[in-house]
């Protein structure tokens, strides 16, 4: 049986990057607990459009938890109160009738607000562009047994590769550090033979770009790991430190 709830939303509104933002309070009624959080936002926007008001700007794309576009800091946590999901996978059944939900954009100096709940995450693209790739053509899909890779390395690499670059780690970090993101990107390539070749150059280039863009210094609090929708492990950060320091010591 369908259950519906009524909610009060406190939403961050900001007209542009240089404008001063403020919270606006809206009421949405008869929200199905089966709907997703972003569908609830769609209902809010439809309501605002019908009232001739400007809809709330928020990032979204695939709505199935793999593109990394959705963000939103909901009730004190990136991607909301559920664990290991993105905002688009968050269901309204996690909320109760009469709740007030506070919705904010990611807050970090390296992620400036563009409008309302949308922040500029171009910094992550720049870090990837600095070295988060394999620069040689690896050809078509090889036979699975052509290059033997230990199961554990393949698993660890795959786990690291599940990072979708949403930025929840930076949003949760008290230091505004991007180390979990960078460590995942360095790890998933460094663990495989195709990526291993350029591992040292990659670690140095991506860390240099990360520092240049004004992300903070990691203090291993682990808030990133808790809030990561893809459960990227803190041990990736140890691997990044290892890769970076040994690359530097060889220079």
């Amino acid at each position: 049986m369908e259950k519906t709830i009524n909610l009060t939303l406190k939403v961050w509104r900001q007209n542009g990057p240089r404008e001063k933002g403020r919270f606006e309070t809206y009421k949405v009624n008869n929200i199905s607990t089966d709907s997703s959080f972003l569908e609830m936002m769609d209902i809010l926007n439809e309501q605002l459009i019908n009232e001739n008001k400007e809809p709330v700007a928020f990032d979204h794309d695939c709505r199935e938890g793999i593109c990394g576009m959705c963000s939103l800091y909901i009730n004190g946590r990136p991607h909301g109160p559920d664990d290991d999901v993105t905002t688009c996978q968050l269901h309204m059944r996690k909320f109760n009738d009469g709740d007030t939900i506070t919705i904010e954009p990611w807050r970090s100096a390296a992620f400036p607000v563009i409008k309302d709940l949308i922040v500029n995450r171009h910094a992550f693209d720049q870090i990837i562009a600095a070295g988060g790739y394999v620069s040689v053509s690896t050809g078509g899909v090889p036979d699975a047994n052509a290059i033997p890779i230990p199961k554990k390395d393949a698993d660890d690499s795959m786990d690291a590769a599940s990072c979708i670059g949403c930025g929840a780690c930076v949003a949760a970090c008290k230091n505004g550090s991007a180390m979990l993101f960078v460590s995942a990107k360095v790890s998933h390539l460094a663990l495989l033979p195709q990526g291993r070749v350029e591992a040292a150059r990659r670690a140095k280039a991506m860390v240099a770009k990360m520092d240049e863009l004004g992300f903070g210094n990691c203090t291993n609090t682990g808030a990133c790991e808790v809030e990561c929708p893809k459960s990227i492990s803190l041990s990736n950060i140890a691997r990044l430190n290892r890769e970076f320091l040994s690359a530097k010591l060889k220079d």
Binding site: N75, G76, R77, T102, A172, K174, N175, T219
Partner: peptide
């Protein structure tokens, strides 16, 4: 440096991690 990287804006709903 970390305070600078964090930026001046705090979360109104706090940190509930």
């Amino acid at each position: 440096q970390n305070m600078k990287a964090r930026g001046p804006q705090r979360y109104a709903s706090g940190k509930k991690t």
